[in-house]
Design a protein around this nucleic acid. Structure first.
Lengths: 102, 102
DNA sequence: ATATGATATGTCATTTTTGACATAGAGTCA
DNA sequence: TGACTCTATGTCAAAAATGACATATCATAT
């Protein structure tokens, strides 16, 4: 694992395999976190494209503005589930999601 | 929404927008569920390709055999997070995940 | 300057997801 | 037959994610 990337993730509050379990699963953990961050980024772009405020999107999802903000900020407390459901609520298709990944 | 598809999802124990909220958000909900089911399917194939038992995969993930079984069965109690982490643990790349979606 | 609208951040009780466990089915082999 | 391996299914306490709320920050317009 690249120390640099790890450092940058930790700075956002993520726990990236802390010191002792520094091998094996770490790569997958990092891939997972990066995947979520990629979706976060796309979520914000998507929402702005649609000219929606966080509050409006929250209402559609029956969620809350603060949760949307945390999602877009890449907060570790938000699940992939919510990210994906948000993107779908914004009209993203599975094809779109696929493009965000690759 | 196609009644047929809805019926088939409900039969697996999924709650697909029950009767009154039969419009609007339903499509996204269905897309979300189908997405999970697609990953479930791929998970089982992937695991078998790798010649791993559910228990072995569970150990890698620090999860349990029963959870893996539920994932592969498309049980509504499992999150996208766990599905994706499982696929990553099996060596799937983001590109692979993308292909599963599109 | 200050009011207004959007976004960020922290906290917390409630809900959902989790791993663990028990146990049941289903297949194979001696 | 029974022993063995793998998978399915149900339950539940513990852990994680959630929406709601308060409040802070940051523009930008008046």
């Amino acid at each position: 694992m690249k120390s640099l990337k790890k450092r940058s993730l930790e700075s956002k509050g993520w726990k990236v395999g802390s010191a002792r379990e520094f091998l094996n699963l770490s790569d997958e953990e990092v891939a997972y976190v990066e995947l979520k961050l990629a979706l976060s980024k796309n979520l914000q772009e998507y929402r702005r494209e649609k000219k929606l405020t966080q509050e409006e999107l929250a209402r559609r999802l029956k969620s809350s503005q603060s949760r949307i903000a945390k999602m877009e900020a890449g907060d570790p407390s938000v699940s992939l589930d919510l990210l994906v459901r948000s993107l779908l609520a914004l009209g993203a298709s599975r094809k779109h999601l696929a493009q965000m990944l690759s």
